[in-house]
Structure formats: structure tokens, C-alpha cells
Design a protein around this nucleic acid. Structure first.
Lengths: 152, 152
DNA sequence: ATATTATTTAATAATGATTATCCTTATCAG
DNA sequence: CTGATAAGGATAATCATTATTAAATAATAT
């Protein structure tokens, strides 16, 4: 059984919780709320969006707490942070490893296209540059089908 | 720098100058200095690095002028801006169109690897998502050969 | 269960690259 | 040469994120 299959079986949330516990991080209600949102969401939420959701359940939560939890989960390798120079970061709790994204510049939706062939490019890079590759980032920017239909 | 590279660089400067003139933008000494640095540089300079270089020739130049000129050149499609969420942007005046980059996380050097196969991925994306693609960004992060040799 | 101790939270100040503002200076067409 | 107006210089403002610090709270020992 592969790692991803194992995680699918147990669920992302379970994996996050067990990793927190194994590293002796405390489980607070606010933290749990953030984990749940990230583990269950499909739509690459921003810190602000996570903040709004958490505050529905715990109205006194601070935005700083959201950022700290996001940083913790990133350090633990449990979420992928998609930072942008001209906008706030977006977070992926479903697939916490580098993979391509396609971003609608109108509605800001981010999707995970299924595609192969990136490993070949990575090997080509190593061969030609001698770099030791640590990670990568591939973003496509465009207009999604729904936004293409809109007149305004 | 090889002869062909020099000719390319010279051509870039001419292109930038003629585009400025055709759009009725004024040619000031500071602006010319920025253009020359970007057209001739191989190393994807930051705004700060451009600033330092320009100030060697025109010591009263403001950083705001550098940013304004960079924004202008970007709007004209004459330079490529590589924005980062956790660092200042870097600029490519040699190839002002999307292309892959490989970035050393230690010395921050940015290089242009020669590789093919990206067009296939782009086509695959369009086919599977229905997006109208506008641009893309592919960065590899790793450690360059020189930095791999260093003990510290 | 209670006390202890270290972690976490909430509120807010600080950061840093970039952008906006506003007044002065300089370009360039006529 | 001159005037209209774009561009420069200095600096304030912005905005997402990070740092700070005192108070609250979870885990552990008593």
C-alpha cells in the first residue's frame, strides 16, 4: 500500500492529527478547526477564508492564530502553500506536495489538472544544470470555462 | 558573453528603445540606464540591484524611478517579472516571455535551462480543463553545482 | 482533582517590498 | 527657445505576513 493510498484510507485529517500528536503539539479547538477546513476543502482557501470559517465556530479567534497554524502545518509537510507576489497565499491541504495548478485570473479559482510528463522535465533539468532539485512550482494562468461565458 | 549573445542583447536594447519612442515615452538618462542594465544583464537582477547600478552613474536616482521604469517595461512586454511571495521580484530583460527557471535557494542565482516538452503539457491542460491559457510559470528550486561544493 | 509548567491564543505592533502621492525638474515637439 | 506635460525624487501609504507580549489554557505531575 502506497503512502497516498494509506492517506486516502485514513483521511487527510487523521494524518494531520496523528502528526501533531506524534510531535507533541497541543490540540486546541481553534487548531482543530483549521485542520478540518484544510483537510476537507477542495478549493485552495486563503488565510482570510480560513479565518472567516474558523470565526463562525470560534468568534474570538485571531488572524495571527490562523497564520501560525498554517505555518505549523507547512513545516510538518501537511499542507502546500501557494504564495503569490501580487496576492495572498492559497493553501492546499489535500495534496501537500508539489503539483501543477491552473488558476483563473478572473474568479481566482485554483484547480489541480491531472497530467503527466513533468518528471521527464525534472530529469532533463538535473541532467543539464547539475542542480540538486528540492522542489518545483508550475502554475498556468488563464480563464476558466464559466468565466469565458460571462459577457461582463 | 558570446558574439551571438551580445548581438541578442544589443537587439533587445534597440527593441526597447524603439518601443518607448513609438509609444511617445520620453527617454531620460535614468530610464536609459535601466534599459541598458536589463537588456545586457544575464543574471535576472532585482529592483535593488538595478537601483545600485543606476546610482553608480546617476547618484541621485530614486528607487521609485526604478520601480516605475520596471513597471513600464513590463506593461510594454519588454521584460519578464518573476515575482516571489517571500522575496523581492527578479527581472529578465533578455527573454520577456514565459519560460522555465531554475533557482538556487542558497546563492539565489536564477538560470534559464534549455528544455522542451512544455508545449505538450500546455496542450494537455487546455484539453482537460477547458481553460483559455494566458501565461504560465515554471520554477525549479534547488542547489546549484557551486553551492553543492561548499561545506558551510 | 489540583497545582505546575510550557504551549497557545489574542491583540497589536512591526516588517518589507512595492505603490501612490505630490511637488519639482527636465524632455521634446513646434 | 519655450511651454505643455511627462518623468524624477522624496517620502508616505499599503497590505499580507511576522514578531511580540501578556493572558489563557492544555498536558503532566503531585
Amino acid at each position: 500500500m502506497s503512502v497516498t493510498e494509506d492517506e486516502q484510507a485514513h483521511g487527510r485529517l487523521e494524518t494531520m492529527l496523528s502528526k501533531l500528536k506524534s510531535r507533541n503539539f497541543r490540540l486546541t479547538p481553534q487548531r482543530l478547526a483549521v485542520l478540518e477546513i484544510l483537510a476537507l476543502s477542495e478549493n485552495h482557501p486563503s488565510a482570510e477564508q480560513v479565518y472567516v470559517q474558523v470565526r463562525r465556530r470560534f468568534p474570538t479567534t485571531s488572524l495571527a492564530t490562523i497564520y501560525k497554524t498554517l505555518a505549523l502545518l507547512k513545516d510538518l509537510g501537511e499542507i502546500l502553500e501557494l504564495g503569490f507576489a501580487d496576492a495572498g497565499a492559497r493553501y492546499d491541504g489535500a495534496k501537500p506536495f508539489p503539483h501543477p495548478h491552473i488558476i483563473c485570473v478572473k474568479c481566482k479559482k485554483i484547480m489541480d489538472p491531472q497530467l503527466a510528463g513533468l518528471d521527464d522535465i525534472r530529469a532533463e533539468i538535473v541532467d543539464k544544470t547539475g542542480f540538486r532539485i528540492i522542489s518545483h512550482r508550475l502554475d498556468f494562468f488563464g480563464v476558466c470555462e464559466e468565466c469565458q461565458k460571462q459577457t461582463t
